[in-house]
Design a binder for these strands. Structure first.
Lengths: 349, 349
DNA sequence: ATGAAAGCGCTAACAG
DNA sequence: CTGTTAGCGCTTTCAT
């Protein structure tokens, strides 16, 4: 049997102990940087570890210590511009802190959410971050039973299920509205996301409130339902253009991109005839024409905030941190400018 | 200490065994669906499992069985339209087959690749899929030592490191070239990706070859260096427009999007004055204006192919499957049409 | 400061 | 068909 490439077998503490002429307990102490080890001996052990190319077996460690250093990450299947950066951010901050993440994309199939939860429980996750709206309270029931700390991005399906990290939609949308107001706009419309989703309704509510603040009281009538997709936004844009708006705020950038495209088709100049504002600041926002004025969201910070919230719960399981609001920031590019005939539009202030 | 919410502790085989009045071995057999269990007893065990809300501890199972059912997934930090679907596809097919995935985004920091490999080894991954160009052969050395099966998407940094799953760039690009040729184009340019990346050079080579096939022999001179980003493509487009092309093939869709934008700025009509073809078929491709003709890639299938390749290696570690080429497909939308003055352009065939 | 021994929760022989 | 027993690789008392 010509088996030339003999793979070195996985080494364990015993092999290391033997080579370093110490007990396995000492090896363990060295690996875990316990102070109570003679430096000379520790050195011998490290040398043996290097020589043998030994890696501690985290599974075994998790079993005895009761800590898996695994975190669950539940994301949605929806094509979401946040997705990559959210995962990346979470993964990075987690790995820096010695945690591993286990991802599960919960999709359309009902019951898959529970399935994902069970799998995570079987892997002993110490906590989980829920970055999707596809998880019901029922799906998360088992996490609750075991007291697994949970953190939700945007909104929890039920109170007390876990901590929540949310974007500061209210200030973000207000900034957008006021930016337009200063430019003389009053006939500002809003294209929302899917209204069965908390993050969408929050943005729409923020819009209505901000409009009231600038003296427009019927703003609810100036909301058109979109669904945060390029496709849905095309339909919403068709409705929009019948309304003769001077400006439109879109619940996300994808929507704004479609509005821009429709406007180009209709030979409507942006921003001189129509100002457009997006939300998210996806990569593409800088590269559409004209470059999109939008409310910028730091996905990376969002992921970090979620991670830290989880760490806090792990350290102190009794205390549920309050809703955390992450700042957003209006980035003015070239899709917004003065309202056409600003003078007439302006109500007496 | 008012601690009313007592979390039920994690149950183990012993508790289940006691409740079902059987031995732990029987519980194990039931969980693992061994045929040799009396149905009545199995039923009793399942009831106990349900009642206690028991989940097997995969960590413990992995330890004794030597199989972690964990797979590593190494991705790049680069914002890549493939990223989400690749991960999603891999995660889904893996979970269906009882595997979990551990993700690591290896980025710019040197040495982080090795770090990621060590972490995966410590978690006993049974195999790993490398979906990034950021891993050198040196980074992957430890995987090699332990004989961990590896699969590369696009290209391996060294031969024999693992199996490779690649897109059929050659046929994809040829289809694009021939589509344009049929429409009467000969002055076809190519905007490449970063040429230090295998997937980019393969596309460019495929372009040159396909051009030769239609009788254009100096096609190498009709290649402009891009970098697969929106930004880099803007620069490449500036060069392109000095060349008076009738058509351009872009190494990826992002590049094509920027070309489209630049063309619009220059009041150049697409497709009547310039035909544009992309590569990837990202979501956005349908929604730019005009909708982009592009070579469509099924990211989902790519992920599945990678997974299956890994499974095959796991089943038969001795055999390295040959390079697997995944078909791609030209999707004709509205960014391509007849060359302006096609008659004159056409060489005598 | 170090070692011996007891398990973490599970599966896999081996008996019966 | 079912139970008993021996570990998987590690951390952790408890002695020394």
């Amino acid at each position: 049997m010509p088996r030339t490439t003999k793979n070195s077998p996985r080494q364990d503490v015993h092999t290391v102990a033997k080579l370093a002429k110490v007990s396995i307990a000492t090896v363990s102490r060295v690996i875990n940087h316990k102070p109570s080890v003679d430096p000379a001996i520790a050195d011998r052990v490290w040398k043996a570890i290097k020589k043998l190319n030994y890696h501690p077996n985290y599974g075994a460690r998790a079993m005895v210590s009761g800590r898996s250093h695994m975190l669950g990450l539940l994301v949605s299947r929806i094509t979401n511009p946040f997705f990559p950066e959210l995962i990346e951010g979470f993964e990075q901050i987690a790995s820096i802190n010695g945690f591993e993440i286990m991802i599960s994309a919960v999709g359309q199939q009902p019951g898959y959410g529970q399935e994902a939860v069970r799998r995570m429980l079987s892997r002993n996750v110490e906590g989980a971050a829920i970055m999707t709206h596809g998880m019901s309270a029922a799906d998360l029931e088992e996490f609750k039973i075991y007291g697994t700390p949970l953190v939700f991005i945007d909104a929890a399906p039920a109170p007390d299920l876990g901590s929540v990290v949310q974007l500061d939609y209210e200030n973000g949308i207000r900034d957008a509205v006021q930016h337009l107001a200063v430019l003389g706009h009053r006939r500002i419309w809003f294209i929302s996301g899917p209204l069965d989703r908390c993050s969408s309704t929050l943005r729409q509510q923020a819009f209505i409130k901000a409009m009231e603040e600038i003296g427009v009281l019927n703003a609810a009538a100036q909301c058109i339902a979109g669904d945060h997709t390029l496709e849905g936004a095309i339909r919403a844009a068709d409705i929009l253009f019948q309304k003769a708006p001077t400006a439109v705020i879109c619940s996300n950038d994808l929507t704004a991109v479609s509005v821009l495209r429709k406007a180009a088709e209709k030979k409507l100049q942006v921003p001189s005839q129509l100002s457009v504002i997006g939300f998210d600041d996806i990569d593409l926002a800088k590269f559409v024409s004209p470059p999109l004025t939008t409310v910028s969201v730091d996905r990376y910070r969002l992921a970090q905030a979620a991670f830290h919230s989880l760490m806090q719960r792990l350290a102190d399981p009794q205390t549920l941190p309050p809703l955390q609001l992450l700042p957003v920031r209006l980035v003015v590019r070239q899709s917004t400018s003065y309202a056409p005939s600003a003078a007439q539009e302006l109500p007496p202030l």
